[in-house]
């Protein structure tokens, strides 16, 4: 599904963010990507989202070879992904329903399908009664669930969450993580970038530890290793 083969990334200022990453993620896997600040987690995310191009090596996601992917094809590739950010990135002037529907409108989904699908997704993330609320009327945890629903709107194969619990309280964090596990169980590949040791240790999934641009540990059912 996702293959990093000796992937290196150097920025124009000379910083070597990734120094040769080899990582394989199968379809339907759940992976935590952890590591200290400056380890290369953000760069890894940017490469997966094709915000940045790799400097050398080979990176493939499904049928897309990101080393070769042209600008024109990037939007079509991104439709295969669902992305959740730490700061939710919702439209403040759109309701919960409209925020989720927007992702479908952007890719030209017919209105009739949007009207059917959005309530079903909101039900999956336990937000059935909130579809007419605006983001400022709901809690941080609920806003993150809206973002999660939006990420699922176009039925992506891969869900990438960048510090999804960074802006919410511990109880809500557990709820968001449980939802991500639930999404994984319906067959989606889920990659969660986080530095929250307790969550990583609690869920005992595959853990990829990054440090100084290299993978220092990759263990299924692993723990957050603070020593790396």
């Amino acid at each position: 599904m996702i293959d990093f083969v000796n992937v290196k990334k150097a920025y124009p200022n000379g910083t070597m963010a990734l120094k040769g990453i080899n990582l394989h993620i199968d379809e339907g896997e759940f992976v935590f990507v952890c590591g200290p600040s400056g380890a290369g987690k953000s760069t890894l995310m940017k490469l997966l989202l094709r915000e940045e191009r790799i400097t050398s090596g080979k990176l493939t996601v499904g049928e897309y070879d990101l080393s070769e992917l042209s600008e024109f094809k990037v939007p079509y590739y991104r439709r295969e992904l669902g992305v959740v950010f730490q700061d939710f990135r919702l439209f403040p002037k759109k309701t919960v329903f409209e925020n989720v529907a927007f992702a479908m409108e952007v890719v030209g989904t017919p209105r009739s399908k949007i009207v059917r699908r959005v309530p079903a997704i909101l039900n999956t993330v336990n937000l059935s009664g909130k579809q007419d609320s605006f983001p400022h009327e709901i809690s941080g945890g609920e806003q993150q669930r809206v973002a999660l629903a939006r990420a699922l709107a176009n039925n992506p194969k891969v869900v990438i969450a960048d510090e999804p619990t960074g802006n919410i309280d511990p109880k809500m964090s557990l709820e968001i993580m449980s939802l991500l596990i639930k999404i994984n169980k319906i067959g989606k590949t889920v990659i969660v970038v986080t530095h929250e040791k307790d969550l990583v240790d609690y869920y005992k999934q595959r853990v990829v530890m990054l440090n100084d641009g290299l993978i220092t540990e990759d263990r299924v059912g692993g723990m957050f290793n603070e020593e790396v």
């Binding site: 989202l49 939007p75 079509y76 590739y77 991104r78 439709r79 992904l81 992305v83 990135r89 439209f91 927007f102 992702a103 952007v106 890719v107 939006r150 709107a153 176009n154």
Partner: peptide, 16 residues
């Protein structure tokens, strides 16, 4: 710009 970046993440094409 935030709206545009969200559009880009959900796969909106340049012309959209």
């Amino acid at each position: 710009r935030n709206e545009i970046s969200i559009m880009q993440y959900v796969g909106a094409t340049g012309w959209f």
